[in-house]
Amino acid sequence: MDPKDVPPQPDRREFITKACALTAGAVAVAVPAASGLFVLLDPLGRKGGAGEPVRVASLEALPEDGEPRKFSVLATRVDAWNRTPNVPIGAVYLRRQPGGKVQAFNVVCPHAGCFVDYVAGAKHYLCPCHNSSFSPDGRIQDPKSPSPRGLDELETEVRDGAVFVRYLNFRAGEKDKVQA
């Protein structure tokens, strides 16, 4: 049926009816959509781990010559509703420094987030994904390295012969080190 068969009504009333119909319909659908979107955005308000210092290794376990060794970081893993104490939440490379200090790096490549290897023979870290390479002190080795920054160093503390690390993750692909 064509609209012109319909008897004409006063324009103004027609307009108000149309506007009301559209508004009512829009509101009715907007409520569920908005409440869903709101919940969808919930993760934006959630922060990464606080990074309390955790014991990672004993100082004894690190070679005297400063060669990096890989260790798992055990801590309480909070995964949405689950809390699991004392499980691996990531890994670090530790290397002994002169003066009884220890340097720690997050094993995650700052380029795209792959797990970086330490190649003992070549004395460098090599990322298996896009070949970023880093010298033992974490700095970018090859100027053509795809990584925008060196390996992410973490705060360490040596207490009673044990190495404590404040484990944090950082955003990949950025020049600056920003906590994820």
Partner: peptide
């Protein structure tokens, strides 16, 4: 008779 739009739509939406 009248078309669905807008009066019946308004009734439905309300």
């Amino acid at each position: 008779d009248e078309p669905f739009w807008p009066r019946q739509v308004l009734c439905d939406a309300v």
